[in-house]
Structure formats: C-alpha cells, structure tokens
Design a binder for these strands. Structure first.
Lengths: 80, 80
DNA sequence: CTTATATGTAATATATACTTGACATAATGT
DNA sequence: ACATTATGTCAAGTATATATTACATATAAG
C-alpha cells in the first residue's frame, strides 16, 4: 500500500552545472521558465519526454535527476 | 537540431515477465488498460510518474523500459 | 457453435501538464 | 535612485494524458 512520490535534484544540478539559470535550463529543454519553476518546486511532475530532455540538458541519465521514492522521511526515529 | 522520440519495451517485458497481460500490468500500475495500450503502441508517452510505476511493475529500472532516442532508424544504408 | 480471454479501436469526458502574460521581490551594480 | 537579473506567484487558456464506456476481432476451449 506504500505511497510513492517523484523527487528531483534540478536545483542542485543547476548550481553544479555552470550555475545554470532557470531560464537557460528552460531554453535547453525547450520549455517555459514557468514549467521549470513548477517542476523544480514539485508542483507537478513532468511528462516522461520532458524529464528526458531535462536530463539531457544536464548531460546525465534520467535517474540522476528524478527518483521515485516512498513518501517517508518522517517516521524513522519516532517509532517509540 | 536532432529530433528525439520516446521508445518503450513494454510488449517485450510483458512476455518475458510471467506472460503478463495488458490488464494485469494496468492493474499493477494503477491505470486503465486503455492507457497501457496507448503507451505500448506509442500513441502518446506517459507521465513520469506512470513511467516509474510501469518500471516498478516489471521490477526493473526506468531506463530498461523507456528510452529517448534520435528518430533515425531509416537512413543508415541508403546514403549512396 | 458458444463461451471466455486477450487485444484493438473509437468517442466523449475529466484531470493534469504546459503556455502566455502580467506583476512582485530581492540582490547586484551603476 | 535607477536598471538589470534571477526568482517567484497568480490567473486564464491550450494541449495532452488518462478514464469510461462500448463495440470489434481473433484465438483457444468446451
């Protein structure tokens, strides 16, 4: 029954790679800056195609940008 | 200027893995059979989230199911 | 010949991704 | 004080993914 969520490292990658700006990434990925903002802040998750293009823009495989993880991150220590 | 396209190996994987039927895969991925048909026959490419769930259903990483390739496959031998 | 199962197609409807445009703010530089 | 650059937000519209329903076909089994 586990619930999963899509996570991304766009922000990290933007700063590692040439201090890439949102607008530059948007242009490289062929998409609007609004779209980058929305994805970066996880307002929604991109289409598979766009996910591939973003990974391409950074020159890394898709798995280095996006992951599909269980929605935990809270209850590790708290369990009694 | 290269044009890319999303390709998938769903059909192959369905037959390798337990002769999985479209409906079974749909159920595992939490989606309609129609959606599986459309993606399998590349009528459209899935959302990133669904792509992850399909890969999970097969127990393989996303890259084993979907790829982002140049739209060639035609002009290799024909170039004079 | 019928029944069941797997696959395909098509129409309409809903949800979500993506665009466009406008405006706000903080930081930096002149 | 003004201009520029990067980031963020909000609203309305367009495009595409996904759901729903219904029907068609092929195959294998009885």
């Amino acid at each position: 029954m586990e619930k999963y969520t899509v996570r991304n490292k766009i922000r990290k990658l933007r700063f590692q790679n040439n201090e890439m700006t949102q607008e530059q990434l948007a242009e490289k990925a062929g998409v609007t800056r609004q779209t980058i903002i929305a994805i970066e802040s996880a307002k929604y998750s991109p289409s598979l195609e766009l996910a591939f293009r973003i990974a391409l823009a950074f020159g890394v495989p898709l798995g280095d940008v996006f992951s599909y993880d269980p929605e935990d991150e809270s209850n590790q220590i708290i369990n009694k």
